[in-house]
Design a protein around this nucleic acid. Structure first.
Length: 114
DNA sequence: ATTCTGACAGCAA
DNA sequence: TTTGCTGCCAGAA
């Protein structure tokens, strides 16, 4: 995934998101950071939004903001769909916020070290 | 070509 | 502690 010049930013976001382990979550900022643009976190959310129209399965529900808040839940159709997806993976969600967020947080930087 | 818009993050009040 | 403003950068219009 180290090919910043030819790969689309969006595509890189998808790749990282797909590699989020089951039952783990990460943040928009973490993804932006791993792509070399720590301040493009907004673009990450923008990309995930676009990903819904793709055929690829992208676990976008595993991406939340830095506080573990389900800021993008409204883009999952229902009001509780995103939450249910997370709970289905064993992640507790309370008041649109992930319980023990730090505990489930997965930093994409893990991909770089083999 | 120019303007507007975010599924964010950081910092100032 | 909570609320609000600002920077960011790639698409869409």
């Amino acid at each position: 995934m180290k090919n910043p010049k030819k790969n689309d930013f969006f595509e890189q976001v998808y790749e990282v998101t797909k590699k989020i382990p089951f039952g783990r979550v990460t943040s928009y900022g973490a993804i932006a950071r791993i792509l070399g643009s720590p301040q493009s976190s907004r673009l990450v959310g923008y990309a995930l939004n676009n990903s819904q129209s793709l055929n690829n399965y992208i676990p976008a529900h595993r991406v939340v903001n830095r506080n573990g808040l389900l800021t993008g839940k409204h883009h999952f159709g229902g009001e509780t769909l995103m939450q249910q997806l997370l709970e289905n993976e064993g992640i507790q969600v309370e008041d649109d916020s992930i319980v023990d967020f730090e505990k489930f947080f997965w930093d994409p930087v893990e991909l770089l070290k083999h």
